Amino acid sequence: MKLGVFTVLFSEKSFEDMLDYVKEAGLEAVELGTGNYPGNAHCDPDRLLSDKGRLQAFKKAVEDRGLSISGLSCHGNPLTPDRDFAKRSHETFVKTVELAERLEVPVVNCFSGTPGDHEGAQYPSWPISPWPHEYREVLEWQWTEKIIPYWKEWGRFAADHHVKVALELHGGFSVHTPATMLRLREEVGEVMGANLDPSHLWWQGIDPVAAIKILGKVGAIHHFHAKDTYIDPDNVNMHGLTDAQSYANMQDRAWLFRTVGYGHDMKTWTDMISALRLVGYDYVVSIEHEDALMSVEEGFQKAVRNLSSIITKEKLTDMWWV
């Protein structure tokens, strides 16, 4: 495996300064935002797709530092009833796939999207209860009329461009659990997989090690985010795991995003790294830092230090003890 970072936390740095900083930190890969929620500070598809020379210089800057691009990330909502944002999200996805092919990046990371509850809806709807019955009816309408048709078409588009689609299993979006990931994969094909981020599994009550085994045994993990979550048991009893308070209400919230090792101990993270190897994942572990209790620099460096001590890099060629 390789250790990398989702570079949106370094958006204030220039592209080459960011690459130098990542290289100096001892990492081997970068995950780059191309628009929508992550922004495109370091990787603007319009500029790169329209200028072959710029594209070649961009790729060379990464390769000259001995780095690789693990994925291009364009998390948005192409299924939202907000037509303007849906259009922007979709167009950015299409351009990101085209750019990934040209850069020989195998993975595009994004969200599944969330539709509304009917054709004339104004806002997305995320039904998570089977009763009253209308919630279940809405959910089936969303999958049948919106989610499956969209990804059948655009999953095929990605596959035609030799790119895999890695959906982040994030609450609030239609694909947010191993089961919903596998449902879409069964309908669309192996081009669809997970950008598995344990931080979003913990707050849904899902054990990431179990999720890795479920998805990994069918080859459905295309990318991995390293981000932690602290669960506050007292606040869970007040607000539940689906706590919808602002992230700024840190003392009151049921859970908070933390840097690696500050929500769960390193034994837990070691178990995840081992589970990834067990199921054959030998790609990038990409640090994502959204810890409100630490600066960009401190949170990043602590994640690097903690993961560097446990990540498994060498291939096991022979069981010498057998």
Score class of each variant (00 low, 15 high):
128 I>A: 15
93 F>E: 03
183 R>N: 05
170 H>M: 00
45 P>H: 07
33 G>V: 00
225 H>P: 06
202 W>S: 12
195 N>W: 04
9 L>W: 00
80 T>L: 04
19 L>D: 00
251 Q>V: 04
147 I>A: 09
316 L>P: 15
186 E>R: 13
278 L>R: 13
94 V>E: 09
14 S>K: 07
72 L>H: 00
241 L>R: 09
166 A>Q: 06
85 F>G: 02
252 D>H: 04
71 G>P: 11
216 G>W: 05
198 P>G: 06
297 E>W: 00
138 V>L: 05
66 G>Y: 05
318 D>P: 11
88 R>D: 14
21 Y>D: 04
169 L>E: 10
278 L>A: 13
207 D>G: 09
4 G>R: 02
115 P>Y: 12
279 V>A: 06
111 F>Q: 06
194 A>E: 04
279 V>N: 05
91 E>C: 07
121 A>F: 07
243 D>G: 14
105 V>P: 00
84 D>I: 12
73 S>Y: 00
85 F>K: 06
74 C>H: 01
148 I>V: 10
308 S>I: 02
67 L>K: 01
246 S>L: 14
46 D>R: 14
64 D>G: 05
172 G>N: 09
197 D>E: 10
177 T>E: 09
125 S>Q: 12
283 Y>C: 03
7 T>C: 03
303 A>P: 07
283 Y>F: 14
163 V>H: 03
258 R>P: 11
204 Q>G: 01
142 Q>D: 05
55 L>N: 05
114 T>C: 11
190 E>W: 05
44 D>M: 04
48 L>H: 09
251 Q>M: 15
18 M>F: 01
8 V>G: 02
116 G>D: 11
80 T>E: 01
207 D>I: 11
282 D>T: 13
147 I>Y: 07
315 K>V: 14
242 T>M: 15
208 P>S: 05
32 L>I: 01
215 L>P: 04
207 D>L: 10
145 E>F: 05
37 Y>T: 03
69 I>M: 02
305 R>F: 06
53 G>T: 11
62 V>W: 02
285 V>A: 03
51 D>V: 09
83 R>Q: 08
138 V>A: 08
118 H>L: 02
242 T>V: 13
179 A>C: 06
192 M>Q: 14
169 L>S: 02
43 C>V: 01
58 F>K: 03
274 S>K: 12
63 E>A: 02
51 D>L: 12
141 W>Q: 09
42 H>T: 00
207 D>N: 15
290 E>Q: 03
185 R>H: 12
21 Y>A: 05
114 T>W: 07
164 K>G: 12
85 F>P: 02
119 E>I: 07
80 T>G: 00
255 W>K: 05
301 Q>A: 09
138 V>N: 09
261 G>F: 08
267 K>T: 10
31 E>I: 07
25 A>L: 08
277 R>G: 11
135 Y>G: 15
126 W>C: 10
287 I>T: 09
79 L>H: 05
188 V>H: 11
129 S>D: 12
43 C>P: 01
225 H>Y: 06
262 Y>A: 04
302 K>H: 04
